[in-house]
Simulated scan of single mutants.
Amino acid sequence: MPRIAAPTNAAQRAQTQRKILNAFGELLFTHGLPGLTMTDVARTAGVGRTAVYNYFADLEQLLVAYALDETGKFVIELKSQLDGLENPVDRLAVYVRAQLADLTRRHLPPGPAMRSVLSSESFEKLGVHVGELNTLLMDILQDGMDQQYLPPADVDGLVQLIHGSLTASASRRNADTPDEERIEAAVRFIQAGVGASFDGEGHPVKLA
């Protein structure tokens, strides 16, 4: 009989599924999605190809599961970072930094690219977490306007522009520019783009 590495069958299944998701994420980061196969995932995870199909019917289902898993963890972590901050401009900076760091780390295809490789049904499954992120950003921007740290504007339009800027910034990684420097430049660009003002020490100030 095969040796059970985990204390129960359920734990063993969870452990194997985690290996598959981690292997898929590693391959996405190192090789990208084009040309990726279930055989590649099985080899990297150290499990049989049949085992991968026991958990995920095809590559599309695996991509959705990975995206939901990673985005879910990201939303929880981001909310915990935002909870300790009062100023909406500072919260916007945390949001931008977290998003760019996450896009750099996970190497998931951006929204439009995901739509092109997924069926409509699969893409809709991602909408829950994407909607949570949109709501977080909308709340930050609206709060900034209500407290007069940001000028009145179309919040929905700003959300689209900010997410577009984040995707573009993540795709323009340059070996000559450290990630931290690139991220801080994006933070300043987006804060300025939504109309935030700062005092001489770099602290957000309300609009005159």
Score class of each variant (00 low, 15 high):
6 A>C: 10
21 L>S: 06
179 D>S: 13
139 D>I: 10
178 P>C: 11
196 A>M: 01
91 R>C: 06
182 R>K: 06
58 D>I: 03
76 I>H: 08
114 M>V: 07
95 Y>E: 09
53 Y>H: 13
30 T>I: 03
28 L>T: 08
45 A>D: 10
162 I>V: 15
188 R>K: 04
65 A>W: 01
169 S>K: 00
52 V>I: 08
72 G>R: 03
25 G>K: 00
95 Y>R: 07
64 V>T: 09
28 L>S: 12
112 P>M: 07
166 L>E: 10
99 Q>E: 14
127 G>S: 15
194 V>G: 09
188 R>I: 12
73 K>V: 11
115 R>A: 14
51 A>W: 00
98 A>L: 00
137 L>P: 06
48 G>D: 15
63 L>N: 09
72 G>I: 01
152 P>R: 06
67 A>P: 02
77 E>L: 04
32 G>K: 00
162 I>C: 09
17 Q>T: 14
46 G>W: 02
119 S>I: 00
133 L>D: 09
30 T>K: 09
108 L>E: 04
196 A>S: 11
203 H>G: 04
4 I>Y: 08
115 R>V: 07
73 K>A: 13
155 V>E: 08
26 E>R: 06
177 T>E: 14
190 I>N: 11
167 T>A: 15
149 Y>G: 09
102 D>A: 10
88 P>V: 07
74 F>I: 01
22 N>D: 15
